[in-house]
């Protein structure tokens, strides 16, 4: 089997539809199969990563602990757009996981490097 690099794109805010969790589950499963996985957070998806989320009262599963645990699965290539950070007045220091902030053109070049892209 050929090596396949996988990019997963998140596009939704926290506590929205199930696509965030479904995408995260793909990340964990593929990592277990030794597929190198990178994550790209676009638009509202950046909002999932804000530090200090206290969601117990919502009675909804919070994905933040899973995001924090990704490094243990060797998933440490997380990307987001500088322009999205600016839009939400955030910096990478406001986020709970280490992410690389890139420009739109860097994103386009980044996507070229992957064999498979899943964008739920």
């Amino acid at each position: 089997m050929a090596d396949k690099k996988l990019l997963l794109i998140f596009r939704n805010p926290p506590f929205s539809d199930s696509s965030n969790k479904d995408t995260l589950d793909i990340a964990l499963a593929c990592s277990a199969f030794d597929i190198p996985v990178s994550l790209l957070f676009l638009h509202d998806a950046v909002l999932q990563l804000i530090k200090g989320q206290q969601s117990q009262a919502l009675q909804q599963k919070n994905l933040i602990n899973t995001f924090k645990a990704l490094a243990m699965y060797d998933i440490d290539q997380l990307f987001l757009l500088e322009s999205d950070l600016r839009r939400f007045a955030l910096s990478t220091a406001d986020l709970t996981v280490n992410c690389q902030a890139i420009s739109e053109s860097e994103m386009a070049t980044l996507i070229r490097q992957f064999d498979t892209v899943i964008n739920l």
Binding site: M1, K4, F33, L120
Partner: peptide, 20 residues
């Protein structure tokens, strides 16, 4: 079956098409 079957599909296929 589990998501491992999707991982296998990625590894075993030349193309993965998503319809959603």
């Amino acid at each position: 079956s589990g998501l491992g079957q999707l991982a296998d599909a990625i590894l075993s296929s030349d193309r993965l098409l998503t319809f959603g």
